[in-house]
């Protein structure tokens, strides 16, 4: 009974060399598209950078102005570049502790059922599109956050970053940073949870039998063990924050004067929001080239963040194995 089947399979194996070759070529081609796309993006945006450097020079990166009607037109993204970094820092300051604590709770304290529920909840948070988060931030978070910012100004106003002279608390980097934090929390939490889950149980048991409290077990066992993965997760979240567009666009008042540190003062910027806000009203191909160049700067920024993240993660991986 089995004989004819084997024979048929052998026969098909013998005749399908051509099929194999076609298959091989197809998937090789498919694999090359990925590399091709990355190279394509880099080269394309890089080429667009040349005319920008020719007309604007390095002042494209160091000045902060965007005026297509002046003669000659001035384009400089320093404020936006700085704004992207400022927003990311605010988001990190909020998101990192919350995500770390959340994942510690899920891994070491929560009962099985609660842990599964929370895992799903975090996945759910990650699935919410940024346009929805942005709207929610605009209608719900921002009005509430005005009061928080007034309190910050009232009680901590002596710290320079919490100064606000204008009394206008709408469209501040603080709120935009909070929105970014909400976007980063699920990313960082899910990576951190997986990393902490992999802490060898014998290490945890050893720490507990030595009388370590929860806190010291984390401090001396779990966190050092998972440090590489956690940093990688944070960088992943950072990459997301740097490039986020719509959600920030809803709640940040974009101004070109650089807002250096007054995070509860209205006005700020980020490269991604610059692109989306200027695209609709771009005056001509030159301005669009400038926006493409801004996109290239953003692209390089996220690329650097990711290369560093990968390096950290892979190095700790090597140390362990």
């Amino acid at each position: 009974m089995a004989q004819p089947e084997v024979m048929r399979d052998l026969a098909s194996a013998a005749t399908s060399h051509r099929g194999d070759r076609i298959f091989n070529r197809t998937i090789t081609a498919a694999a090359f598209t990925a590399l091709f796309v990355l190279a394509g993006i880099t080269i394309f945006l890089g080429l667009k950078m040349i005319p920008v450097l020719q007309t604007q020079g390095l002042s494209f990166l160091t000045t902060s102005a965007w005026d297509s009607f002046s003669d000659p037109p001035i384009y400089g993204i320093f404020g936006m570049l700085y704004g992207s970094i400022l927003l990311s820092v605010i988001a990190l300051v909020v998101a990192v502790p919350v995500s770390l604590l959340l994942s510690v709770f899920m891994v070491f304290l929560a009962p099985r059922g609660v842990k599964r529920a929370l895992t799903n909840l975090v996945d759910l948070m990650a699935a919410i599109p940024s346009v929805i988060l942005g709207l929610w931030a605009f209608y719900v978070l921002q009005p509430t956050a005005v009061e928080w910012q007034q309190l910050l100004h009232q009680y901590l106003g002596w710290i320079p970053i919490f100064q606000n002279d204008s009394g206008n608390y709408i469209g501040t980097p603080f709120v935009a940073g909070l929105v970014l934090a909400v976007m980063m929390i699920p990313i960082i939490t899910s990576v951190t949870r997986e990393v902490l889950d992999r802490t060898p149980p014998e290490l945890i048991n050893a720490a507990e039998s030595l009388g370590c409290s929860m806190w010291s077990m984390l401090r001396y066992v779990a966190l050092p063990y998972g440090r590489g993965g956690i940093v990688g997760g944070v960088m992943l979240g950072l990459g997301r924050a740097l490039g986020e567009t719509i959600a920030v666009f809803f709640v940040l008042k974009i101004v070109f004067d650089v807002n250096f540190f007054r995070i509860i003062e209205s006005g700020g910027g980020s490269i991604a929001t610059l692109i989306v806000s200027k695209f609709g009203e771009a005056s001509g191909p030159e301005e669009i080239d400038m926006l493409l160049a801004a996109g290239f700067v953003l692209f390089m920024g996220t690329l650097i963040v990711n290369v560093i993240a990968n390096l950290i993660v892979s190095r700790t991986g090597k140390l362990r194995s």
């Binding site: 091989n24 998937i27 090789t28 694999a31 990925a34 590399l35 796309v37 990355l38 190279a39 993006i41 394309f44 945006l45 992943l236 990459g239 997301r240 740097l242 490039g243 986020e244 567009t245 991604a272 692109i275 989306v276 926006l291 493409l292 996109g295 953003l298 692209f299 996220t302 690329l303 963040v305 990711n306 290369v307 990968n310």
Partner: peptide, 30 residues
């Protein structure tokens, strides 16, 4: 099918990782 140790393979690995992290607005411009 690819040899996991070749330099080309590692280059592809890294570039796919990086592509996954490119902000969506950059894809929009592109």
């Amino acid at each position: 099918f690819a040899r996991p140790t070749s330099r080309f393979q590692r280059l592809v690995d890294v570039s796919i990782q990086n592509l996954a992290a490119v902000p969506s607005i950059v894809y929009g411009i592109l």
